[in-house]
């Protein structure tokens, strides 16, 4: 099953970081949960790493799944793209049980990815990562003129916006007129 391979491979780099923690608290065996995004690729993530997400943490704390049950019921996050979920899982693994540093430089520099990441992180309620992402967005705005910001983030000017609204209204008006015409036709 290719999906589990993907999952274990992504969880693998987190192994060394789990070692000292389990050494510190050896009596508690680590439990794992499974998540997948829009692409259905399943990621295996430790409960410790998932603590970062208030949403998932809330879900699993009430479930009391066994390993098998968890494996059989991965959490579906259909609204999150596969690569974005991968980033989130990687971040959670890297920062498992560790105090988060004041800066995080490993965030995506491409704005498309960053925005999707912000929305995913917001949805999953990962507070620290959301702060880093918002800092990153602020960095991308820094020192830019309004025109540059508009260009980078593809934001229409007010004039364009108003024109689009007018156009939409017109179209809606036409459609409404068409419908009434059609309705009138039906009535005949």
């Amino acid at each position: 099953m290719s999906s589990t391979e993907q999952g274990t491979s992504s969880a693998a780099p987190a192994e060394p970081t789990t070692a000292p923690e389990s050494a510190a608290a050896p009596e508690v065996p680590e439990s794992f949960y499974y998540v997948h995004g829009k692409d259905k690729v399943v990621h295996k993530v430790s409960a410790g790493a998932l603590q970062h997400s208030a949403l998932i943490h809330g879900m699993i704390s009430n479930l009391g799944y066994t390993e098998e049950q968890a494996k059989a019921n991965p959490f579906p996050f259909e609204n999150i793209d596969g690569d974005i979920l991968q980033m989130v899982v990687d971040w959670c693994n890297q920062h498992k049980g560790k105090p988060t540093p004041p800066e995080d430089t490993n965030l995506p520099k491409q704005k498309e990815k960053l925005f999707d990441l912000v929305l995913a992180v917001n949805y999953l309620e990962i507070k620290e990562l959301l702060t880093y992402c918002c800092k990153q967005v602020a960095m991308m705005v820094k020192g830019k003129s309004p025109e540059e910001i508009r260009e980078i983030w593809m934001i229409p000017t007010d004039a364009e916006d108003e024109a689009a609204e007018k156009e939409a209204k017109k179209r809606a008006g036409k459609e409404a007129a068409g419908e009434t015409a059609a309705a009138a036709g039906d009535a005949k």
């Binding site: 704005k111 498309e112 925005f115 999707d116 912000v118 929305l119 917001n122 959301l130 702060t131 918002c134 800092k135 967005v137 602020a138 960095m139 705005v141 820094k142 020192g143 830019k144 983030w153 593809m154 934001i155």
Partner: peptide, 24 residues
């Protein structure tokens, strides 16, 4: 692509909180 304009308000709040006054 999601636009900055479509971000939830508390996210915009955070972005503004991390920006300086000229950027705002």
């Amino acid at each position: 692509m999601t636009s900055l304009v479509e971000m939830p308000e508390h996210i915009l709040d955070k972005v503004i909180g991390h920006s300086n006054f000229k950027d705002v």
